[in-house]
Amino acid sequence: MTDPRHEKEQQKHRLNEPEGDEIDVTRMHLGLTREHGEPHEGYEPMPLWLPTLIVGLLVWAGYYIGRYGGTFDANSYDPVTIEEGAGSGNGASQGSPMDRGKNVFVSTCVSCHQTNGEGVPDQYPPLAGSSVVTGDSKKLVQIILHGLNGPLVIGGKRYDGSMPAWAGTLDDAQVADVSTYIRKSWGNKGDEVTPDQVKAIRAATSGRGQPWTAAELGLPH
């Protein structure tokens, strides 16, 4: 650097810095006048644990795709919650109907109807205090199996949305458990629904290819 102003400035830095400081401007920029050659590659072999790890990962990948691949069906959806503990992904068979029903509810229904069963104002109707939930269990199961489309009045408020069908995702026991759970939670006082009842309703409505409307089920709309 020939400019005297720069020299002065550099001197100033030297004065400001303690002797033997590990970073020194001139040393740091040795590269300006001398730098190492452009990088190239060595040919060391990769450590043996890496290919081992890769084989392990590939085996795991095969398992995971097989286990959770949903047979590559466009209509196969996640059950949302993979329960803690292996092998319980498709619904625990232990516990009371209320416990099992709660598991199904948390993994399937909660995103719209919320954990407190209050739904979302103007969007998703509440289950708590709903006569549709605590009333005729046949209508409730029909709605869970095949969904519900269009206007519906719950608690004096009108909703116009659509609930998907769960017949392909939930088995009879799961539908029964979740029905029982929502009929007995949040102050609701309904009776239990059994898997046999669900089985009968599923069989009776098996030809149903589209959601119900409130009018079809005789519900207020």
Partner: peptide, 19 residues
Amino acid sequence: PVPTWLMTASITASVMMVI
């Protein structure tokens, strides 16, 4: 609300990023 297979493919590839 995305098909399971798409999610599974994505998760598998994400784990494969370890390589």
